[in-house]
Amino acid sequence: MITIIVADDHPLMRSGVKSVLQSDEQINIIAEAQDGQEALNLIIKHTPNVALIDVEMPKMNGLEIARRILELKLKTKIIFLTMYKDEDMFNAAMDTGAFGYVLKENAAEDILEGVKTVASGDYYISPLISSYLVKRLNAKKELELRQPSINDLTKSERVILKLIAEGKTSQQIADELHISYKTVENHRNNISKKLNLSGTHSLVKFAIKNKEKI
């Protein structure tokens, strides 16, 4: 049995969605809400498997509700029910940790499959805008593959990194390159930022580990 809460400030829309959901014996609507604050309170109280939430609601919008659920680490999976086909809105919604995005114009056709898909742990996007999810996943994959590397450094920064790998201090590097100590420190900070390094010894460890590549 899939437990679900339906939240929409439009009574007719809420009634229509409930009617579709109630046609399936696997789904149990345990509560409904007409504004965002009521929806959040009900989700916290009941922790349903799925919460079907309108993006635009009074008192608290759907995105705010989803963020709160994420902060509270509740197990309820969010499906946004919306009229927005805009890609930016879609990405903003999915950034909140939502599992589904169903267009109101296709709710009658999509809602049952969407609820069952999300309840099983998968994502569901209305087919009309499914390309948004593909683009989103591809962008995420490209970002993961695009790891910072030594090739992102300037020639001067690579020289500094090579000397760090040799175990030299900032003052020794400054003396050898005839530049100021402050300039060396600036280079070190810039190198760390470019390589996403943090911590007192992380730059030294990276330099030693990649000495042959510099």
Rank of each mutant, 00 (worst) to 15 (best):
T3F: 12
I5R: 06
D8Q: 06
V17H: 06
L21Q: 00
Q22R: 07
S23Q: 14
D24A: 13
I29L: 09
I29M: 05
I30Y: 10
A39E: 04
N41A: 14
N41E: 14
P48Q: 01
P48K: 03
I53V: 15
M57Y: 07
A66I: 09
L70V: 02
L74P: 01
M83V: 15
Y84T: 04
M89F: 07
N91F: 13
A93Q: 02
D95S: 15
D95N: 15
T96I: 11
F99P: 02
Y101K: 09
Y101P: 02
K104M: 08
K104F: 08
E105C: 07
E105W: 00
A107C: 07
V115D: 01
S126P: 04
L133C: 06
V134A: 14
E142I: 12
L143G: 03
L145S: 06
P148F: 13
P148I: 09
I150G: 11
L153F: 05
L153A: 08
E157Q: 15
E157W: 11
E157Y: 06
R158H: 05
L161M: 03
L163N: 08
A165C: 07
A165V: 09
T169W: 12
I173Y: 08
D175S: 13
L177N: 01
Y181F: 13
E185N: 11
R188G: 04
R188A: 06
N196D: 07
L197R: 11
L197N: 10
F206P: 07
A207M: 04
I214P: 04
